[in-house]
Design a protein around this nucleic acid. Structure first.
Length: 281
DNA sequence: ACGGTGCCCTGGCCGC
DNA sequence: TGCGGCCAGGGCACCG
């Protein structure tokens, strides 16, 4: 499940390979339906200026004024070698070595499309996406403001990409565990102090995972075909029934925002129900 | 604007 | 072993 650390790992591998290359030709696997793989032919003849990342999206500006947008979804893999199965897109590139880029995506949750630069209206999530967690603009105070007034569970809000970019199901659970916050806590109820803890946890877990080339559960591979090694360091995700690494209590699995959710019932206290105060009763 | 629901898609896993 | 059924989940349309 590629989230920010996995996408950043891929970006670092793609940048030296793709920067400066010209897209000679694009090919789409037959019968691939619309919006997930749109406008590819627009890229033909254009040069890749850079390989950038925004949240979990890869953004490749092209010198003709368009932008190649790639999202790996759950199972997307970019490779310089022919994966043979489930190849959705092939790019022919200028240059001497590795002149083909393959996009493999068994479950078709990924995206691979070309739009006029900064035409984010075609992708709503990019439009309302919060700050990059590893840039200085992501501060604890700013984070607190973005959570203010929100009554939904903190987990659901983090998954929306609105308060901060790039978190998915794994790193949300990890960050909430590290900050000792229950996933159902109404986001706007987090104190400034708790929000600062969460802010710190988000940055720490993402940086640690990038240093380990990300987490491989099933499909994720780096461009070179390697697995990420952060899997072994996960403290919450996938550890239901196993002992908490802080207090030893058994971690629990539940469902929050339609996602499998892991937390420690002792370290991450259940929020008290709202209401029972003020004019409501 | 906000929060909640259901859908997409298919490899892999589980139970019988 | 074979088969049916179900789960995983990011983004997004849609609803109230």
């Amino acid at each position: 499940m590629p989230e920010l650390p996995e996408v950043e790992t891929v970006r670092r591998e793609l940048a030296p390979w793709l920067t400066g290359r010209i897209v000679r030709r694009t090919r789409l696997a037959e019968a691939e339906p619309g919006p997930r793989y749109a406008g590819l032919e627009r890229a033909e003849g254009q040069r890749i200026v850079a390989v950038n990342r925004r949240g979990k999206f890869l953004l490749l500006p092209l010198n003709g004024g368009d932008e190649l947008i790639i999202h790996l979804g759950m199972t997307g893999v970019i490779s310089c070698r022919d994966p043979r199965h489930h190849v959705r897109v092939v790019l022919d590139l200028s240059g001497r070595r590795h002149r083909r880029l393959y996009f493999r995506d068994p479950r078709r949750f990924g995206r691979f499309l070309v739009v006029p630069a900064r035409d984010y209206r075609t992708l709503p999530t990019l439009h309302h996406m919060g700050p990059e967690p590893l840039e200085p603009s992501f501060t604890a105070d700013h984070f607190h403001e973005r959570l203010a007034g929100r009554r939904g569970p903190i987990k659901a809000l983090l998954l929306s990409q609105r308060p901060v970019a790039g978190l998915g199901n794994i790193y949300v659970d990890e960050a909430l565990w590290a900050a000792r916050i229950h996933p159902l806590t109404p986001a706007g109820r987090l104190s400034r102090r708790k929000t600062a803890h969460l802010h710190q946890a988000v940055v720490a877990v993402l940086e640690a995972s990038i240093a380990a080339s990300g987490t491989t559960f099933h499909d994720y591979r780096t461009v070179e075909g390697e697995r990420g090694t952060f899997f072994e360091r996960l403290a919450a995700y996938g550890r239901d029934g196993e002992p908490c690494r802080r207090c030893g209590a058994r971690l629990r699995k539940s469902v929050v925002a339609q996602r499998g959710t892991h937390h420690c019932p002792r370290c991450q206290r259940t929020p008290r129900p709202e209401g029972r105060r003020g004019k409501a009763s």
